[in-house]
Design a protein around this nucleic acid. Structure first.
Lengths: 204, 204
DNA sequence: TGTACATCAGTGAACGCGCGTTCACTGATGTAC
DNA sequence: TGTACATCAGTGAACGCGCGTTCACTGATGTAC
């Protein structure tokens, strides 16, 4: 649906664009330093504005963080969708690998995810936003694992698949004393193995 | 090896006991409020001492936290050991359930674990301590999943089992809008299902 | 037995820092006449 | 066209808070003579 170009809509778009600039700056900062060290001032600096300005576009820090995170999940969903739609075999394995791969390369998303999952002190609106993206990712996984099946057990299987992949990431992200490349190879191998478990269980 | 009761050994024991009192106080505080809100002052208050005193017994905050965490892992290992040693069936399933159960009930341990895994800014000594308890837990899992087998693949399987359980915890701990009891039931069910996957894969 | 001194665990106060958030103000742009 | 006024996005400075950590000091206990 294309919108009529009223003055009001132009202005709304301008506001949106500015929000986007801030979110993009946030992403760059998240990629460059540990998530829990990122401050409003950092992001403002990266965006080239005063830190006070951010509060004209976002209610508070958490809202901004959540929006940046949602951004990342959207990217993951696109990847999964692409694999689901192609004609090649071994979809489950490739999705598992792709998921782990993306979240190792952009590990600030993963850090944010765990942060949100563990923190608990989120506002209602951010929570609803997070739940919504979570649900839609689970939907994708469910379609992938058990196409055409919408029973309770099939949702459970999607839950477990999702959990297993997250578990690989949280458990082996910081495998001590190993070079990054090797850690990633190890995690991908684990993801493959997990995919096999779900694949063979799906055939029964 | 029993130690000779020298004056020096008595004094060493006294210091140890005091450390223990502080650690125990820390545990009680961790159980009562969110992990990331716990301060040195809280713990000192609970232990009935000045917060400055803590620095006579621990190098810094992280060292104290790590020691409290190691405490928790020891409890888990005891539980797993008990299940591994008994004569009943379905060891894998019961271990999975017990693991998830313990870390939901005492979820500050889980929060600490993820915190350490994600943080990265730990000193060398704490890291070595964490790795050591991690390894010994993985050893237990490996013996449980593939008794008598010490091949590379069997270690991998233990890794994946460990990761899958952690994943269940991190992913569904805060299942939105559901009462705690129901969430726990759900997680235990997922743990059971995971155990089945590993059980049946182990039979091949 | 008594006195002067040494040790040292424990303490409250203070330091220093970083950060999220608010606020009074500015200066550019738009509007009314 | 020019002038006085209104609006409002953007800003730097300041507020307030919490916290980890340090430090000078105290007072109880032990030691030497």
């Amino acid at each position: 649906m294309t919108q009529r170009n009223t003055f009001a809509s132009l202005k709304a778009k301008l506001v949106d664009d500015k929000r986007r600039i801030i979110i993009d700056a946030a992403e760059r900062v998240f990629a460059s330093k540990p998530f829990n060290k990122v401050s409003i001032r950092d992001i403002a600096g990266e965006a080239g504005i005063s830190h006070a300005t951010i509060y004209s576009y976002f209610a508070d820090q958490q809202s901004l963080f959540v929006e940046a995170f949602v951004q990342g999940v959207a990217t993951i969903e696109q990847r999964v969708e692409a694999i689901a739609a192609d004609e090649k075999k071994d979809k489950i394995g490739r999705v598992a690998e792709s998921y782990v791969d993306f979240l190792t390369e952009n590990d600030h998303y993963f850090k944010m995810m765990t942060h949100f999952m563990l923190d608990g002190s989120l506002g209602e609106k951010p929570i609803e936003k997070l739940n919504s993206v979570g649900r839609s990712l689970l939907d994708q996984f469910e379609r992938l694992l058990t196409p055409g099946d919408t029973r309770h057990t099939s949702r459970m299987r999607a839950h477990n698949f999702f959990a297993a992949l997250n578990g690989i990431l949280i458990t082996f992200r910081d495998y001590p004393g190993r070079p990054m490349a090797e850690v990633r190879r190890h995690m991908k191998k684990l993801a493959r193995q997990t995919a096999e478990l779900f694949e063979s269980a799906g055939r029964t």
